[in-house]
């Protein structure tokens, strides 16, 4: 007896498309297409269904197909003063953003996008639908496969539908910029959404009710600006927040998220190696959840 909500027609079609035979590659908007390596040639390209299927403003949850763009999702949510803070290219699909699993630039306040996922329905290697998590804002029923799927590059299953937590759109948003010690600024502020630093200039994003934004801004000697700077898109590193203090070498362009540890580079970066036991666990997961290696072949999380 599965009493969770009924399955939408396009989801069933998506599952049938994936089927149980042959290599498949799921295509979104190709905004982060080369992360983890390009798909193997010869695999069938399949798109996940798009559409916001239900938005319950009083529950602050939204359910949509994985192929929905972030723009479409937030257009729907904003009708009720809500948002899903996926601060990525708005053309990216929700499923693609989750499969890649990179957080947005307001992570300091809103956490990893992983933490906004309540339920995922995915298609497994045999073409069957699997539901994990639950539709409510809080849930610990069963293993947390949702978190496992986020950042899995579709290697463990193809995300079909997600239920996400929405947040209220803040009353006021303000961006400041100037020069200053970003680490001191971080310690000065109360849970700011974003502090960015390129080794020279600092940008601070503030949100909340007007008086709070003003009082926080008054603590800093920075000038108002319209928006955050463009993010370099050549490469990305994930460092301990305190290691950002060591980023003084300005031979290449970078922009660091203070307090978070993400650094955006203009040039490609080498991924961090995995420990042996973790590599083994990850291989065990792959060979159990996709024994024939047919889901998104070519992409790699576990380097051999």
């Amino acid at each position: 007896m599965n009493t969770q909500h009924s399955v939408e027609e396009p989801i069933l079609k998506y599952a049938a498309d994936i089927g149980s035979l042959g290599p498949v590659t799921i295509v979104g908007s190709r905004t982060q297409w080369d992360v983890g390596g390009l798909p193997s040639p010869g695999s069938r390209e399949i798109r996940a269904p798009a559409g916001v299927w239900s938005h319950q403003p009083e529950e602050m949850t939204v359910r949509c197909g994985a192929g929905t763009s972030i723009r479409e999702l937030n257009e729907e949510c904003s009708r009720f003063g809500q948002m899903v803070p996926f601060d990525l290219n708005p053309e990216a699909t929700v499923g693609g953003a989750l499969a890649v699993g990179r957080s947005g630039f307001r992570r300091l306040r809103y956490g990893h996008i992983r933490d906004l996922v309540l339920q995922i329905r995915h298609v497994d290697h045999s073409g069957l639908l699997v539901t994990s998590g639950g539709p409510t804002v809080k849930n610990v029923s069963g293993y947390d496969l949702c978190r496992l799927l986020v950042g899995s590059l579709g290697k463990l299953g193809c995300i079909a539908e997600v239920t996400l937590r929405c947040l209220p759109i803040p009353e006021t948003t303000l961006w400041l910029t100037g020069t200053g010690d970003p680490f001191e600024i971080y310690n000065e502020l109360y849970r700011p959404p974003s502090i960015l630093w390129d080794g020279d200039q600092v940008w601070v994003g503030l949100e909340g009710v007007k008086s709070d934004v003003e009082s926080q801004a008054a603590l800093l000697k920075l000038d108002q600006t319209d928006s955050p700077p463009p993010f370099p898109e050549g490469g990305r590193r994930s460092l301990e927040p305190k290691a950002l203090r060591g980023l003084v070498e300005r031979s290449e362009g970078w922009l660091a998220e203070i307090g978070v540890g993400v650094v955006h580079y203009t040039t490609p970066q080498v991924p961090e190696p995995l420990s042996d036991p973790n590599k083994r666990l990850m291989s065990e997961l792959e060979c159990r959840l996709d024994p024939r290696g047919r889901l998104n072949p070519g992409r790699q999380l576990v380097a051999t």
Partner: peptide, 29 residues
């Protein structure tokens, strides 16, 4: 300490650790 006796670190202090989110999976298991 994994069920086979191996010791490993799931997740780390960086924002986007490499590989699958074994940390997230372990929490609540």
């Amino acid at each position: 300490v994994l069920p086979d006796g191996t010791v490993t670190l799931l997740g780390d202090l960086t924002p986007e650790p490499a590989g699958y989110d074994l940390r997230g999976l372990f929490i609540g298991s």
